[in-house]
Design a protein around this nucleic acid. Sequence first.
DNA 1: TCTGGGGTCCTAGGACCC
DNA 2: TCTGGGGTCCTAGGACCC
Length: 421
Amino acid sequence: MFALLDCNNFYVSCERAFQPQYLQKPVCVLSNNDGCVISRSNEAKALGIPMGAVAFEYDTMFKQNQVKLFSANFVLYGDLSRRVMNKVREYCSDVEVYSIDEAFMNFSSQEQYLSIREHCLKLRNIIYKGIGIPTSIGIAPTKTLAKVANRIAKKYPERTQDVYCIETQLQIEKALKWLPIEDVWGIGRRLAERFQKRGVRTAWDFTQLNEATVRKEMGVVGVRMFYELKGIPQLGLELPKTKQSIGVSRTFSQSITALSMIEERVVTFAMVASEKLRAQKSCGNLITVFIRTNTKKTDEKQYVNQFTVSLALPSSSAIEIAKAAKYALSKIFMDGYSYKKAGIIVDGIVPETARQMNLFIEDQHIKHRPIMQVIDNLNKRYKCDKIKLASQDLETRWIMKRQYLSKEFTTNLKDLLVVKV
DNA sequence: TCTGGGGTCCTAGGACCC
DNA sequence: TCTGGGGTCCTAGGACCC
């Protein structure tokens, strides 16, 4: 049996864990630049605030309903996620951390010895008591059905005590008939639309199609889903892998027109991307830079483009990657546009120890490695970007709009809460 | 004034190999 | 009239996830 643990309204729950006065109140967490809503409490959902709601459009609505807003505090969320996952590992030896707020567990080696549901109830309660994060757990014979069970637990918290188990064929059938096709894990907007047009309205309808039809519509991914929903496992737990692509991008709070300004941003993104590469001991050789105007402003001139530079040798040198990024940018930058977003993506990632060498090309990665080590050590020690490339902005004028930021309650000594007796 | 960020997998088609 | 057969690798784009 598989189980899926999912933290309820995770970012909101992280904020509430330290500011419990907002329990039972409408709360939203906003994206970078306080742009849009990325997490909502149940009370906020009940007010009709949709996921991705554009914050400024809801100004009055937030005020009228006393919705408490928070700016995204990913340092806090990352740390609480780590604590939750550690607790999960205490209760199951076979765990896949699927996202910041979700983990799959595989109980196949333990199931004859314990009641999985009882076990998961204990886990759920200890996480709530010890970390302050409410979670829901779904249990089923396949990962896809565990997702379904989890949804049922979330929808009916009282009846399920936040933990629901799908076991028998009858339970599978009931659950699938209950689940709209668009809520199946792996069915997005496009596929849902296509299936609905053909009268496939629930997950059950989908499982009643024949395999060939499913293969034609969705390829092998669909066939896997087909059997997973019928209770025949196609997916196992996945081992943590090093990333195969690393991206860093930002939307600017104000549009940029000058090449020099965008160049500074792109170099900074290159710096961050190279740090991530080095952190997982990888190198990459394909450096893509993209830029775009504000595609939401239909009355303005639009321009979207990207360019990829292929390095002779895979590298994690910030200097080399930044240089490639600057070149890529120069190939696509056009005067006369207002740019709203830019980013860099590094692909062609290989382990540092498995780089293909070349006899006749100077190896910048090796040449720069000692400098990169010093940079990484200093930035780690001082927990910020003390060392920058000269083409980066040395004045840190790029301050994100984070009007409602909470403290780093668990990762910064000066933010520790003081408990009065 | 104001609209997030970071990933994965699969497939089709082109370029190339013998 | 008619033009082989069997592969690999790479890339762009589409779909999805959180």
